[in-house]
Simulated scan of single mutants.
Amino acid sequence: MRISVPTIPFLSSRPPLPQSSLQEAVDRVAKFLFPGNIAVLTGAGVSVDSGIRAYRGSQGRYLNPNYQPLFYHQLMDESEAGHMFRQRYWLRSYLGWPAIRASLPNTTHYALAALQHAHVVPRIITQNVDGLHHRAINLIPGVQNDRILELHGSLHYVHCKHGHSVDRSTFQDWLSAANPQWQAFADEVERTGDKPRTNPDGDVAIEHLGTSYRTFVVPQCPSCLLDDRINSVHKPQVIFFGESIPPAVKNRSFQDVEAADRLLIIGTTLATYSAFRLLKHAVELKKPVLLLNLGPSRGDDIEGIERIDMASGLIIRDVARLVLGTRASTDPIIAKMLQSGVVKPPEDDTDTEQALAK
């Protein structure tokens, strides 16, 4: 399975959804969850309250009009052109990583973790690569993190083309040591607060820096050097556009949907086929599906699914409290989770959306 760049915005033939009140939305989602054994599929909208921008706004358009994803073959190309692609990517990632590293789980992450702890939601499949679902569920002692499937991988690890793996913070230190001038630039950005726009995949927009990325040094892999190999081709452990999802991950995603009685989809436009096909699979199996997302999605024209047009952060904590009843206050782990979570969305992108709509 390969990730391809989707066409946007989404144009739905279905009529707009009637506006629901917050309490109506809470009641509808809670009713959907009450039977238990729910699989949850999440997207970038879930991490917005953690300060990480979604790719698209409420109209289905990219919030960054200059967004140009890097393709897998470009990153791994060993020609001079590929070297420049890697310079550009790793500079963007170098400047964006501190914001991802500092991000904290929000109320939606913790509410879903509470529902996992209560076995209402045994399985979470996420398209997000920020690791925030794992950070939220780590409040549960001895939890098995394999209950969270990262469909598109994780930003928290990097590997070279020969398979040597290192954690992202260590790789950040390598980048700093190889690029003292860019470390100074990053320190100045941090000091002034004039931070570039961070994307959900952990990099930043650097169009204003022109071709200065060509001074960025991508370090050699130390493990390869020990084997007398010169190799500076590194890749984060995420799935790039044009790259195949590992068969084990693809199969597991289908199995998680099959093992559940219902599928709740939160905060995603389902633009990538790897996610959209899970919705289609659930519908083919005649499993109830509820889509909670702000704005249009690729699933809007799928018959037989229930849709709510709303941001998850507005209601999911109250949904969890309603579903869990007295356990929301008597179970100390659940109570702690339902009192945890940041609400720090990025600056308002309304002006950007209005400009794009013109």
Rank of each mutant, 00 (worst) to 15 (best):
R2S: 03
S4L: 09
P6D: 04
P9L: 05
F10D: 05
S13C: 13
P15R: 10
P16G: 09
L17H: 03
S21W: 12
E24C: 06
D27E: 15
D27H: 10
V29H: 08
F32N: 03
T42C: 03
G43W: 03
G43T: 01
G45S: 10
S47N: 06
D49L: 05
D49M: 08
S58C: 09
S58A: 14
N64W: 14
F71I: 04
Y72V: 00
Q74K: 14
Q74V: 00
Q74I: 02
L75W: 06
S79D: 06
F85H: 15
R86Q: 08
Q87S: 14
Y89G: 07
S93Q: 11
W97V: 02
R101I: 05
L104H: 15
L104N: 12
T108M: 04
H109L: 09
H109R: 11
A111T: 04
A111L: 05
L112A: 06
L112W: 02
A114P: 09
L115D: 00
L115P: 00
Q116T: 04
A118G: 04
A118L: 02
H119M: 08
V120E: 00
I125V: 15
I125Y: 03
I125P: 03
T126L: 12
N128M: 03
N128A: 05
V129I: 15
D130M: 10
H134N: 12
R135A: 14
A136T: 00
N138W: 08
G142N: 11
L151I: 04
G153W: 08
C160T: 05
K161F: 01
S169I: 09
T170G: 06
F171G: 07
W174T: 03
A178P: 05
A184D: 07
A184M: 06
A184G: 02
D187H: 11
V189P: 02
E190A: 15
T192I: 06
K195G: 07
T198G: 10
D201H: 13
H208Y: 14
H208S: 15
L209V: 03
L209T: 00
S212R: 15
S212Q: 15
R214I: 12
T215G: 08
V217G: 04
D228A: 14
H234V: 11
K235F: 07
K235P: 06
V238L: 08
F241K: 06
G242Y: 07
E243R: 11
S244C: 13
S244G: 00
I245L: 15
A248G: 06
V249T: 09
K250Q: 13
Q255T: 09
L263I: 01
I265A: 08
T268A: 05
T272A: 15
A275D: 05
K280L: 13
A282T: 00
A282E: 00
A282V: 01
V283M: 09
V283Y: 06
E284A: 12
K286Q: 14
V289T: 01
P296D: 05
S297Q: 11
R298V: 04
G299F: 05
D301R: 10
D309W: 04
A311K: 13
S312E: 00
G313N: 06
L314F: 13
I315D: 04
V319I: 02
L322E: 08
G325H: 07
T330I: 07
M337A: 03
Q339A: 15
P346V: 02
E347V: 09
E347D: 14
D348W: 12
T350L: 12
K358D: 10
